[in-house]
Each structure stands twice: as structure tokens, then as C-alpha cells.
Amino acid sequence: MNKTLLIILALLGVVILAAVSSYNGLVSSSQSVDAAWAQVQNVYQRRADLVPNLVQTVQGAANFEKSTIVQVTEARASVGKVQINQNQAPAEAAQLAQFQQAQGQLGSALSRLLVVAERYPDLKATSNFRDLQAQLEGTENRIAVERGRFNSAVQNYNVRIKSLPAVFFAGLLGFQPKPYFKADSGAETAPSVKFDLGGTPASPSK
């Protein structure tokens, strides 16, 4: 019995087994990223679905600032235009950035609308508006949670494809690093509030 041949065969077997098992690990890790992505899509969709109802409610308030409503409606429309796979996490950083930018615009338009609504006590007192506000806050909170989970799933995956032994196989098997959500550029700047002392509706800051 040729011992050298036996050892070489066994080593080859080890390499193949390691490749197979790290492939399986990478697949499941990649699927966790996709699952987290689907959740992210869910919660963003939930927010988008609230918009028509919210717009309708604030329009009911006497002379509610029109430009704010227009901004929300436009941002909602541009969110719908971003083409993105709902079930598979984006592979390109640019794709994710585009999605995030559109959603960020809707987010800041909505928060501006809530700020403006502070000036309409009659509107704020209606239970319909308060319910919508609670739903919107809950949805923003869910977005933050699911985005955080998505990022940690991506981190887990990205660390994995760069760790031993997967680092030897990941590139060959087509596993590329995936992009993260970045901290929102609008998040650190609070929407500007303008107090109109003259009684005319304030113009929105563009």
C-alpha cells in the first residue's frame, strides 16, 4: 500500500469536504441575508402603504400646508419607481444606495409633515391622526430594527466569506461581498422647522 498516495487522497478528500461544507455554510448565510432583506422590504412597504391614508387625513384639516403634502406624495411615488428585487439582497452598493436614497427622501418628507402637523392642534386632536402617527412611529421603529438586522446578517456573511476555510472557495463559488445600509445622511440633520408669524403658510425648505 502506497502511503504517500493514501495521504494525498485523504488530503484531497479533506479539501473537497471542506469546500462542500463551507459552500453549504455560505449558502445558508447568504439566505439569511436575503431573508433579512425581505423583512426590510416588508417594513418599508408598510410605511409606503400608510401614506395615502395619512395624506387623506391631513388634507381634511383646514388649509393644511399644501407643499408638505406634495412632497410626501412625490417622495412616495419615487420610492415606487426604484426597481429592486424584493427577495434577494442587492449585490451592488449603488443599487442599495439608490434604494436608500429614495426611502430616505420619503422618510424626511414624512417627518417634516409630522412637524408641520404640530401647528394644527385641531388635526392633532383627532383620533384618526393620532392613530396614524402611532402607526408611522411604529413603522419607523421597525425599519430601524430590520435594517440593523439586515446589516448584521450582511456583516456575518461578509466575515464568513473572508474567513478560513471559506476564503479559499468563496470567490470560486461566486460568493461576493454584499453592501450594507449606510447611516442616513438625513438622520443627523433634523428637519428644519419654520414658525410662520405672519399667518401665511410657511414655504418648505427645499
Partner: peptide
């Protein structure tokens, strides 16, 4: 896990 398979093959060897 890779390590487990690794060790199994090692022992078999």
C-alpha cells in the same frame, strides 16, 4: 462544520 468533517477524515486516515 468544516472542523468536524476535517477531524473525521483525519481519524479515518
Amino acid at each position: 462544520s468544516p472542523l468536524g468533517l476535517f477531524l473525521i477524515v483525519f481519524v479515518v486516515l
